[in-house]
Design a protein around this nucleic acid. Sequence first.
DNA 1: GGCAATTAGTTTCATTTGAAACTATATTGG
DNA 2: CCAATATAGTTTCAAATGAAACTAATTGCC
Lengths: 160, 160
Amino acid sequence: MPSSAAAKSAAGLDLDRFLPYRLSVLSNHVSDAIAKIYSERFRLSIPEWRVMAVLGGTPGLSARDVAERTAMDKVQVSRAVDTLVRAGRAARSADAEDGRIQRLALTAKGRAIYDEVVPLALHLEEVFLSALSPAERRQLDALLAKLARRAHLLVVAETA
Amino acid sequence: MPSSAAAKSAAGLDLDRFLPYRLSVLSNHVSDAIAKIYSERFRLSIPEWRVMAVLGGTPGLSARDVAERTAMDKVQVSRAVDTLVRAGRAARSADAEDGRIQRLALTAKGRAIYDEVVPLALHLEEVFLSALSPAERRQLDALLAKLARRAHLLVVAETA
DNA sequence: GGCAATTAGTTTCATTTGAAACTATATTGG
DNA sequence: CCAATATAGTTTCAAATGAAACTAATTGCC
């Protein structure tokens, strides 16, 4: 019965069971909750915070490095860095060897914000994860790792 | 040792282990891969596809209903519906009882697209999920349900 | 050494987005 | 019944976004 199978498959798209949809809604809710912390208290946009997050952990990166690690594009990074520098939260310095590159780092002011936001972000993550038992957290970690690997393969394959 | 604890927590934000970041990257990769299917083949934007996805399953919804089910805002829905109607893929009809409401549904043309996209979307979902065993899929389903419930609570709590 | 091709980063411009204002209809309290 | 309030949906306007063009520095190749 091919025709009834086709009808069934079309009727069968239940958004609440559809993985891409579930992931998107969940991710947006989590991001929004976190964004609230830093946008309200520190006047930071999401891209700005992402840049600060990597620079806080690894100072001296170039803009390209930051783009790579945050999965942002270079235009976004450029603009976020610009805003951070003008706010005195990050600084650019010339690279000794390559004149095209700028080494980026948080200023003392930027680091002070970083040191305040990080515990808040980790706390909120903990609030989320406290919905799960330790065993479930390990499961989640493993599942996300597998899915991320698969997703990465697909994206790369499609682009190539 | 409060100061060393603070220093440690700040140093401890590893993006690759940070749940909000992992979810965001994964979700974007999955959405991008799916978006490719319908944007290229059918000239559909993501909001347009979301509207079609709910109307395909449940015709006769109002714009507000659609917004609720897709987690989109009403402006986005209004614009997506407008585009769909102008493309002859969806139609509005007056509600018999409430003059403010428009009942939305796919046209034959819209349904033909829906019936083509749904199997493609389900197939791609299956490709993603094939990274997991049946037992792992059940785990994922349960974990996402718990996290979604928790996330929903947080978002509602913050807004209130 | 010097010209072509790359790479880092910025700028420009058209499109997308979302908040707030607006129109039109419906409901509620007096 | 009618004024005040609420709801459905659209429009407007300013800000965010991303693709493509651009500038500047570097590398590779002959």
